[in-house]
Simulated scan of single mutants.
Amino acid sequence: MDEAKCIQLLEEHDIKPTANRIVVVKALASSIQPQSLAELESRIETIDKSNVFRALTLFREHHLVHAIEGTGDGTRYELCHSHHDDHDDDLHPHFYCEECQQTYCLDGVEMPQVQLPAGFKQHSSNFMIKGTCPHCKK
């Protein structure tokens, strides 16, 4: 993703496009799989861990990233495909391979619908399937 697209994506989510935030968006956009904070930190040598974490926290508040929990190695982050700063419209399940510890996005797979009891309001959803990926199954 080029810098102009990164800036556009940040602005669509009502986030001021600073140099650090653009670098973090580029790193996330170039990742095939969701990234942990440690992985992002090692890929982005020009920004310290606290600034990467602050950017991810802001991105999460503005629905620019999904935070995927329950992968065995902490929270992983991926860019949302939505263009809204107030909700996610691209929720999808994830698969965690217990062999290679990789997390895969299952884009195109529908999230199961859960009927919440009266009085409950959903803000986000995290659906993780665990098992063995096709590569490790061989």
Rank of each mutant, 00 (worst) to 15 (best):
D73H: 13
C105L: 08
D85A: 13
I32Y: 10
E69T: 05
A38N: 15
D88R: 15
G72Q: 11
I44L: 10
Q102V: 03
E39I: 01
H87G: 02
E39V: 04
E61L: 06
Q101F: 10
E99S: 13
A55C: 10
H62E: 04
Q35H: 08
F59H: 03
N51H: 12
L56W: 02
H87C: 10
D89T: 07
E99H: 09
I47R: 05
D90S: 12
N51F: 07
T103F: 04
E61T: 07
S36M: 07
A67P: 04
H63D: 04
E39R: 09
P93L: 04
C80H: 02
L58V: 05
I32V: 13
A67V: 05
L56C: 00
S82F: 08
N51T: 11
Y104T: 06
I47G: 07
E41D: 15
R76E: 05
L40K: 11
A38Y: 08
S36N: 10
E98W: 04
H62W: 01
R76C: 06
G72P: 03
S50I: 12
T46E: 15
T71E: 00
D48Y: 09
D85L: 03
N51E: 13
Y77K: 02
S50R: 15
F95G: 08
E98D: 09
S42W: 00
S31A: 15
H84K: 12
S36I: 03
H81L: 12
E45S: 15
P93G: 00
L58Q: 13
T71I: 06
H92S: 06
S36W: 08
T57C: 09
L56I: 05
D48I: 05
E61K: 13
L106V: 01
E78Y: 02
R43E: 14
T103V: 14
D88K: 15
V65E: 07
L79I: 09
K49H: 13
H94S: 05
T46N: 13
K49Q: 13
C100N: 07
G74F: 09
Q101C: 07
F59I: 00
S50N: 12
Q102T: 10
F59S: 10
P93Y: 05
Q35S: 15
D89W: 00
K49V: 08
A38K: 15
E61Y: 02
I68L: 02
G72S: 03
H81I: 01
Q35R: 12
R54H: 02
A55N: 04
H63R: 10
L58H: 00
P34H: 02
E98S: 14
R43Q: 14
L64V: 03
A67R: 05
C97D: 10
L91S: 09
L37F: 01
R54Q: 15
E78N: 04
